[in-house]
């Protein structure tokens, strides 16, 4: 009887140990907030056949957290991108203004190539909403942007030491594969769409990599300074579409700067041992 009790206690203790470890690991979460400025190239042939160029401002918020899924090898990543741009025509006598809000969630499976390099990849879903406004057009002054996708996200994390401190290099890429996009037809006015038809058919289009060959990618360097982790990097946001015989793109390239905060939901006695999810 004593022996059986001992075995049960050992099993329970082992299970609790595993559970505690998993719970501990998935309580690590990382939040990054960045702002940046960059260049924008905007083309939408509903508004103009010409490419407009200018500057953009961008905010990005990222959360990255380990989950219990698939033996703790799956991470949840969310990205919120908000950008706004002001651009001018090639002749510099007309302006287009616009912006987009993008929210993106992905579940990334981790492959650990060695103790420094991890590759993560998995499915993602994203939603996008925004507008482009051309200041001098008459009945086609603006183009609403609304689309959602499922696709794949990938992330490469490289941990290394820089000036005797732990640094992390990230490369992120997001590629939509299948989605739905709102678009007027080639010469359709918003007056007809919403003033007469009260919402029309043919205005929601199925998108694939052929009709929406788009990519968001970024490269960041995290570096600890004092009690804070600084993040600097680059975001390349290349959005393109070709639906309803209308085509367009918004290319933006921004330099980003911000901070990373690593959280653990339980009290941590030794801050030197707080791990970031990028190190798990």
């Amino acid at each position: 009887m004593m022996r059986r009790s001992w075995i049960v206690c050992c099993i329970l203790a082992f299970c609790c140990s595993i559970s505690a470890q998993e719970e501990d690991a998935n309580r690590y979460t990382s939040h990054a907030l960045m702002g940046g400025v960059g260049l924008a190239n905007v083309f939408d042939n509903y508004l103009s056949p010409l490419e407009y160029t200018g500057i953009e401002a961008r905010l990005q918020r990222e959360t990255f957290r380990k989950t219990k899924l698939m033996e703790g090898n799956v991470f949840v990543q969310t990205l919120l991108n908000v950008n706004a741009y002001t651009t001018h025509s090639p002749a510099e006598n007309a302006h287009m203004y616009g912006g987009l809000v993008n929210w993106n969630i992905s579940w990334l499976y981790k492959w650990e190539l060695n103790n420094r390099i991890k590759v993560l990849a998995g499915p993602m879903a994203d939603m996008n909403g925004g507008v482009i406004y051309n200041e001098r057009n008459s009945n086609n002054p603006a183009q609403a942007k609304a689309y959602a996708n499922i696709g794949v996200n990938a992330r490469v994390i490289y941990n290394f030491n820089l000036f005797h401190k732990p640094a992390t290099l990230h490369y992120l890429a997001s590629l939509p594969l299948l989605g739905a996009m709102f678009s007027p037809q080639y010469g359709e006015s918003y007056y007809e769409m919403f003033g007469i038809k009260k919402g029309g058919s043919h205005n929601v289009c199925l998108t694939t990599p052929f009709s929406q060959p788009s990519l968001r990618h970024a490269i960041y360097l995290d570096y600890p300074i004092s009690n804070t982790t600084l993040r600097i990097g680059y975001v390349g946001d290349l959005q393109q579409h070709k639906v309803n015989n209308l085509k367009g793109h918004v290319y933006s390239h921004a330099l980003m700067f911000g901070f990373v905060k690593n959280f653990k939901l339980i009290k941590q006695k030794d801050k030197d041992h707080v791990k970031t999810p990028y190190q798990l």
Binding site: S48, P49, P90, N139, E188, S189
Partner: peptide
């Protein structure tokens, strides 16, 4: 015709009947 706008490379704006 409901007019739309466009432009040519030298910056001149064009309006035309579209619908």
């Amino acid at each position: 015709g409901l007019p739309f706008s466009s432009e040519i490379p030298n910056g001149w704006s064009i309006r035309f009947s579209a619908c």
